[in-house]
Amino acid sequence: MSRTPFCNSVSVAGIGLRQYKRGAAPEPEQGVLVRAIHDACEDAGFAPEDIDGFVAYGDDHNEPVRLMSDLGTRELRFSTQVWGGGGGGIAAAFGVAAAAIATGQADSVVVFRALVQGNSGRMSAAVMRHHLNDHVIGGGLLAPAQICALRAQRLFEHHNVPLSVAEELVRASYYHGSRNPEATAFGKELDLDLYRNGRRIAEPFRLFDCSRENDGAGALLLTSTARAKDLRRQPIRLLGVANGAAKGWGNLAENDVDYESAGFRPVARRLWRDTGLTPADVDVVQLYENFSAQGVASLIDHGFCTFENVAEVIRFDNLIAPHGKLPVNTSGGNFAHGFVHGIGTAIESVRVLRGESANPVPDAKICLLAGGPGAPTVSSALFGTEDL
């Protein structure tokens, strides 16, 4: 039996995404976000003024009280943000929103993230506050890529995970992105020679092993499943959420017992336990990939494969829609769709279950959304169709 029954009573009713090349947003960050929220309401057939709750993550700068005049909000009843962890908190935001709705603290909550460089600066600079401290800076680690690179080397060298699996994951993301008109990589499959010879960022990462940064905003409108059934679009139910960190994981001392992990092992165990589902029940995965090796580690942590059989599972033909057994990042993900701190992966979780993805997964009923791997705190969520 599910330990989080409130999740089943809450659904995503509408989605909105505005995305632009970094530095090219036509409006300030708040304006882009308000348009994304209006898009989500239009998608659902829902009046923006009836939104009464907001949840964000990753140090979003847009306080809900400052959105009220633009949205015509009648009453703000609930507003909060998931602390720290960068993109690791993306799925946790849905759990917070669902809890607010299920307990009557709000009726209709928007989960959002906005990022416009001219207002918020570079994402990499913001993330440093959560991933770096004096201990690691003193050792010469000045960027998240360097820390994740060390953990990647542990994955590849100590556990003998072949480097080729990282390439397979990146290639699958670009395959999907090249077929998605909304994606930054539309029309451009990954050039393997360019990938293999790209400039080194931090060994073992080269340029295309790293997510890109974009301007934009995304918004997802959540309400009770009963209410969502009366709106315009097919409700996509929130089946369960788990978030947090294992003992010692969040101390930023870089001496974790499972140093190669993406941090999801205890989170994934709770998610499967609380929902009664298993990796075998998942039809499609939307995976936050900040770096290629962390995406691989995330799939291992969630139980889709092991160190020993990872090359059998994380291979190009198995990861692509429509015929792969485990389609991953059907919009192109953070590598090829675009990167507004991962909110696009949540949007795609809904689209693919509605049958609206640019790379459809036939008869998909359950989608896993995994937050930013390797962050001090991480989170995962499961979404499902109404007829599940």
Score class of each variant (00 low, 15 high):
122 R>A: 12
81 Q>G: 05
149 A>Q: 01
358 A>H: 01
35 R>N: 09
315 R>H: 14
305 C>D: 07
282 V>P: 00
355 G>Q: 06
259 Y>T: 11
326 L>E: 00
318 N>P: 07
303 G>L: 04
280 A>I: 05
337 H>T: 01
50 D>C: 02
306 T>F: 05
139 G>Y: 13
325 K>W: 05
151 R>V: 03
201 I>W: 10
285 V>K: 06
237 R>Q: 14
252 L>R: 15
81 Q>C: 06
229 K>L: 13
44 A>F: 01
230 D>R: 14
330 T>E: 03
74 R>W: 03
265 R>F: 10
26 P>G: 10
246 A>C: 13
326 L>Q: 05
228 A>P: 04
232 R>V: 11
145 A>M: 09
319 L>T: 02
33 L>T: 03
63 E>H: 14
6 F>S: 07
307 F>G: 07
366 I>G: 13
139 G>C: 14
193 D>C: 09
305 C>W: 02
70 D>W: 02
184 T>H: 15
157 E>C: 11
145 A>S: 14
216 G>R: 04
353 L>W: 03
137 I>C: 15
324 G>F: 03
210 C>G: 04
57 Y>R: 00
250 G>E: 09
373 P>F: 10
302 H>L: 15
17 L>M: 15
111 V>R: 00
265 R>W: 10
56 A>Y: 02
24 A>M: 13
101 I>E: 01
23 G>R: 10
385 T>M: 15
176 H>I: 04
339 F>C: 08
70 D>R: 01
173 S>E: 13
320 I>E: 08
64 P>F: 02
1 M>S: 10
268 A>W: 05
282 V>N: 00
107 D>G: 12
357 S>A: 12
300 I>D: 06
120 S>R: 11
9 S>M: 08
12 V>D: 00
207 L>D: 11
356 E>R: 11
169 L>W: 01
